[in-house]
Computed example of a mutant assay.
Amino acid sequence: MSETNDTPTPADRPEVAPDAPAPQTEAERLAALESEVTELRDKWLRAEAEMQNLRSRARREAEEARLYAVQKFARDVVETAENLRRGLDSLPKAEEGEPELLAKLRNGFEGVERGFVAVLERHGIQKQDPEGKPFDPEHHQAMAEQPAPEGVEPGTVIQAWTPAWTLNGRLLKPAMVVVAGKG
């Protein structure tokens, strides 16, 4: 203000933008603040929900990594189990009067196989024999189709060349199977 005159001059008045809102009443100001609080609360709730989703996703991914980290190793070990079975299948069938050494070798290798499969099962690796079950393209790989024998439905696995293997429910290796076709 000027020293001689108590009335403000145009230079002493603060600039008011032409599009500035008119001064608010107390009720309008309170309504604006409530609206802002509601908006901020909504943003906070959304951020909190997003954080919970992120924690859940991270927990699930960590659990999957723990369960399936050994998948490649498990696939190799399963191959070893199948080779052990092939070796056992190549031995002559047990016969009366066979050499004692052959019987002991067969029994020993069968015990090794049982123990090996038990160790695999303790660590979540399961062997599934598909013979006599319906063909499941999720777990079986059809290697051949043969006419269905008497009393067998078409689409049934009639022979398994190898079993299916899973790791904690996830397919490691499909079974190689022969499927009964329409006669």
Score class of each variant (00 low, 15 high):
T4S: 10
N5M: 02
T7E: 10
T9Y: 04
A11Y: 12
R13E: 01
P14Q: 00
A17I: 07
D19Y: 00
P23H: 08
E26A: 09
A27G: 07
A27E: 13
E28R: 15
L30M: 06
L33Y: 09
E39L: 10
L40K: 08
R41M: 04
R41C: 02
W44D: 03
E48H: 06
M51C: 15
Q52K: 15
N53Q: 15
S56I: 05
E61D: 11
E64Y: 08
R66F: 08
R66A: 07
Y68G: 00
A69K: 14
A69C: 06
V70A: 13
Q71V: 07
A74T: 00
D76T: 04
V78K: 07
L88A: 12
L88E: 13
L88D: 14
L91P: 03
K93F: 09
P99S: 01
P99N: 03
E100K: 14
L105H: 10
G108A: 07
F109E: 13
E113T: 06
E113P: 06
F116V: 08
V117T: 11
A118C: 11
V119W: 02
E131R: 07
K133L: 00
K133P: 01
P134W: 01
F135H: 01
E138T: 15
P147W: 02
P149A: 09
P149S: 07
E150Q: 09
V152C: 01
I158D: 00
Q159S: 09
T162H: 04
T162W: 00
P163K: 11
T166V: 12
T166G: 05
L167N: 08
R170K: 15
P174G: 10
V178T: 04
V179F: 02
V179A: 02
K182V: 01
